[in-house]
Design a protein around this nucleic acid. Structure first.
Length: 423
RNA sequence: GGAGGCGUCGCCUAGUCCGGUCUAUGGCGCCCGCCUGCUAAGCGGGUUUGGGGCUACAACCCCAUCGAGGGUUCAAAUCCCUCCGCCUCCGCCA
């Protein structure tokens, strides 16, 4: 939720952000009207309530004959208080409903527009020229089969489309990637976390995934639980209802968890392979820091993502996501997209968002600094999402005979293995 | 899954049976001041969070807040109901 004070004092900033995201500007006026109505309702209720309290305090001390009169008086007042309270609650609910539909502001630096309006910040590495090397690259499905690493057919048999088994070196590769990621994170001062993949509605709602993204979320039938689409959800809710001491910031967590996504509305997209799946494992960086520090921290998260991709020796580019593609919570988002040889294009491997105080407000997380409590910022960034990392590695480092060269940094995590060979 | 116990403003704690004097007790910690070669001790004061009013986003005033939400009542930390969490025991189980 955005800062109500910004809405009240600088509505034009909110209007500008809405426009930049390609969303309704009119909602700002509705929110402002609801805010006024809410404050009026609060003032009315509080005045009545104060009156009731003052009268009520006299009753125990009143003389018997006076008491009867007071009781009668306060009884009608009680009814008025009840009505005023109902009106207050209704006004507050309406205000909060409208406010919740307003996404976070968009950073000035974020490009305006939709999905295709991103700007490319930089290219790192050069895509391999397979034509020059004289062979046609195989896609990850084919290599995965040759190596006995990915079993998509049986994934579909057992669980349906967009499911897979990682087997043999595929399974080893997952643990190697996870450990490489966790080691890097620990070296950078992150606390390693294994996070629950099932969360209560509060956590889902608080991170902004029950809004327009709700279609993509699995709910457990008969239980008030959701399967997370990212451990960001659990890690944001981790400190909900807490006030963190400023001296303990930044708090950096690297969380491993499975992730589940319905992929509703992506029928026909990426139907082959494991680029887009209903379940995958991921190591996610999650940071709590001050709003002022959040911008620099965002850059650091991006740097850690790049460091990891560099270790995998991939060619990739970094894009600055357009405002319309930021999602509900972020004010700015960088995606790292790796070159996928058989697709001839860059595909998102990791992504980092600065959510400033948007999620923290919904989850009641604050910071105490010099006796003051203030809003805190949350940020997240992928260190590694397993299937896409595997896709990029297999396709990028494949050799003519179907084997795959293991990037140097990954070798220690695979028992020194330098090459994955067809089985 | 079954039975029982518990949840108070950072931590501990009084209060809940018998509703109003609870503007929630006391201790610890912390902050400010006094005292003081320094430190400690001592003494005095302060110390939940959110919101509204008024404003300099100060001070001040007000409302809510005793796990959460409902209810009873003129009045709820206190009585009733539902939910959540923690603990103990039993059963089952990786």
């Amino acid at each position: 939720m955005i800062d109500p004070r910004i809405l009240r004092d600088e509505p034009d900033r909110v209007r500008a952000a809405q426009a930049k995201r390609g969303l309704s500007v009119e909602v700002v006026d509705r929110a402002l009207a609801a805010d006024t109505a809410r404050r009026t309702a609060i003032a009315t209720f509080e005045a009545k309530r104060a009156e009731q309290k003052a009268l009520g305090a006299k009753i125990p001390r009143a003389a018997p004959e006076e008491k009867q009169q007071l009781l009668a008086q306060t009884k009608t007042l009680a009814a008025e208080v009840k009505d005023a309270e109902a009106a207050r609650v209704a006004a507050e609910e309406e205000w909060s409903e409208i406010l919740k539909t307003i996404p976070n502001l968009a950073a000035d630096e974020a490009p305006a527009g939709g999905e295709d309006d991103y700007t490319v910040i930089e290219h790192i590495g050069t895509p391999r020229d397979f034509a020059a090397e004289g062979f046609e690259p195989r896609d990850h499905v084919e290599i995965g089969q040759l190596l006995g690493a990915i079993d998509i057919e049986r994934g579909a048999k057992v669980s349906g489309s967009r499911f897979y088994f990682l087997t043999g070196v595929g399974a080893q590769l997952e643990f190697a990637l996870v450990n490489l990621a966790l080691d890097q994170a620990r070296a950078a001062g992150f606390t390693q976390v294994i996070a629950p993949a099932l969360v209560r509605p509060r956590a889902m709602e608080g991170t902004g995934f029950l809004g327009q993204a709700a279609d993509d979320v699995y709910r457990i039938e008969g239980e008030d639980l959701y399967l997370v689409g990212t451990s960001e959800v659990a890690m944001a809710a981790y400190h909900s209802d807490e006030i963190l001491d400023a001296a303990t910031l930044p708090r950096r967590y690297a969380a491993f968890s499975p992730c589940f996504r319905k992929e509703a509305g992506s029928h026909g997209k990426d139907t082959r392979g494991i680029i887009r799946v209903h379940w995958f494992d991921k190591v996610e960086m999650f940071v709590y820091t001050t709003i002022e520090e959040s911008y620099a921290e965002h850059q650091r998260l991006l740097a850690w993502e790049k460091e990891f991709l560099d270790k995998l020796e991939l060619a990739y580019r970094v894009i600055d996501t357009a405002a319309g593609d930021l999602g509900l919570s972020a004010i700015r988002k960088f995606d790292c997209e790796a070159w996928i040889p058989t697709q001839g294009r860059y595909r998102e491997l990791t992504s980092t968002s600065n959510c400033t105080d948007f999620q923290a407000r919904r989850l009641d997380i604050r910071v105490r600094e010099e006796g003051q409590t203030k809003a805190i910022a949350t940020l997240n960034g992928t260190l590694t999402a397993i299937p896409r990392a595997i896709v990029a590695i297999l396709e990028t480092h494949q050799q003519a005979d179907g084997s795959v060269r293991v990037p140097e940094a990954l070798r220690p995590y695979l028992g020194g293995l330098e090459e994955l060979k067809p089985v």
